[in-house]
Simulated scan of single mutants.
Amino acid sequence: MKKQFPQALTIAGSDSGGGAGMQADLKTMQMRHVFGASVVVAVTAQNTRGVNDAFTLPKTIIDEQFEAIADDLAIKAVKSGMLANSDTVRTVAKNLRKFNFGPYILDPVMVAKGGAHLLTDDAVATVKQELLPLASLVTPNLPEAEVLTGITIKDQGAMRVAAEKLQTLGAKNVLVKGGHLDTETAASDYVLLADGTDFWLSGPRFETINTHGTGDTISACIAAEIAKGTDLKSAIQIGKAYVTATIRDGILVGHGHGPLNHWAV
């Protein structure tokens, strides 16, 4: 008898270097024993050294990808990453309202590791208006949380305030990733849940520049776990443990900000 398999969806851009974006999402879902489907919204020419060029797909083909997936697959959780511009954000929001793909994880990707901007300035407002209210969980890093909330984040207290602000903007649950905080020994993330409970997730800080795709990976892992039926708190904890392992057990690929080791356990 064939086994019914949990299925999750990533909405993201393609990373030709294979380290982030749709490629990182699908590798992560595969490692979590979840079948990953994808809606590609943009194609980038990039590697570990940076983004050379990018092309955003027309709205019609984005719509058609959503239609095709909804017509055939049983998606139980969905995440989004790079969305490029306001038109794409609106198109994604429209389709998320139209189709029931389960809990939605919003990774508000704005800047690549090499510094290239992956979300236009006007699209930030659209993300706040259109996507935050749809999100079961939003997973910004500190620079992204600062842009979304207008709060300068220099310590853990400010991380709490930013998470509360994101809830007032419509996000139900919030994971503020603290990797950019200036601490020597630990990388601590703050989680604020819809019921008001909160907790910290801490992991060791590793001396490496091979962290390309960390945000994509943790959000994809959380989405995959939710598709399997894992509760949100446990899914977040599993996501943190997995991304820590992918950095700890690093691999050497390329000559810049290298990718994670998605084989790590």
Results as ranks from 00 to 15, higher is better:
residue 2 K to S: 08
residue 2 K to W: 13
residue 4 Q to H: 13
residue 14 S to R: 13
residue 15 D to E: 14
residue 16 S to L: 03
residue 18 G to W: 04
residue 22 M to F: 09
residue 25 D to G: 04
residue 26 L to R: 15
residue 27 K to V: 00
residue 33 H to C: 10
residue 41 V to F: 06
residue 45 A to K: 12
residue 49 R to Y: 08
residue 49 R to K: 13
residue 53 D to G: 15
residue 55 F to D: 14
residue 56 T to I: 04
residue 58 P to C: 01
residue 60 T to K: 15
residue 64 E to N: 13
residue 64 E to Q: 15
residue 66 F to D: 01
residue 67 E to R: 14
residue 74 A to E: 11
residue 75 I to L: 00
residue 76 K to N: 10
residue 80 S to I: 01
residue 80 S to H: 12
residue 93 A to N: 06
residue 96 L to A: 06
residue 101 F to L: 12
residue 102 G to R: 13
residue 105 I to K: 15
residue 106 L to Y: 11
residue 114 G to C: 10
residue 116 A to Q: 05
residue 116 A to H: 08
residue 117 H to P: 13
residue 118 L to Y: 09
residue 120 T to F: 12
residue 121 D to S: 13
residue 123 A to Q: 11
residue 126 T to G: 08
residue 134 L to F: 08
residue 138 V to N: 03
residue 140 P to L: 00
residue 141 N to D: 05
residue 141 N to K: 08
residue 141 N to S: 01
residue 147 V to W: 15
residue 151 I to C: 01
residue 153 I to G: 10
residue 164 E to F: 12
residue 165 K to N: 09
residue 167 Q to D: 10
residue 168 T to Y: 14
residue 169 L to D: 05
residue 170 G to L: 06
residue 171 A to Y: 14
residue 173 N to Y: 00
residue 177 K to L: 02
residue 178 G to R: 07
residue 179 G to T: 04
residue 181 L to W: 00
residue 184 E to L: 12
residue 188 S to G: 03
residue 189 D to I: 03
residue 190 Y to A: 02
residue 192 L to H: 12
residue 192 L to T: 06
residue 194 A to N: 09
residue 198 D to I: 02
residue 199 F to A: 01
residue 200 W to A: 05
residue 201 L to M: 08
residue 203 G to A: 07
residue 203 G to H: 02
residue 206 F to V: 04
residue 209 I to W: 07
residue 209 I to F: 06
residue 210 N to E: 08
residue 212 H to C: 05
residue 212 H to K: 12
residue 212 H to Y: 05
residue 214 T to C: 07
residue 215 G to Y: 10
residue 217 T to A: 08
residue 221 C to T: 06
residue 222 I to F: 03
residue 223 A to P: 13
residue 224 A to S: 11
residue 226 I to C: 06
residue 231 D to F: 02
residue 232 L to I: 01
residue 234 S to N: 15
residue 235 A to G: 02
residue 236 I to M: 08
residue 239 G to I: 01
residue 241 A to D: 07
residue 243 V to I: 06
residue 249 D to Q: 01
residue 252 L to Y: 14
residue 253 V to F: 14
residue 256 G to F: 07
residue 262 H to C: 00
residue 262 H to W: 10
residue 264 A to V: 00
residue 265 V to L: 09
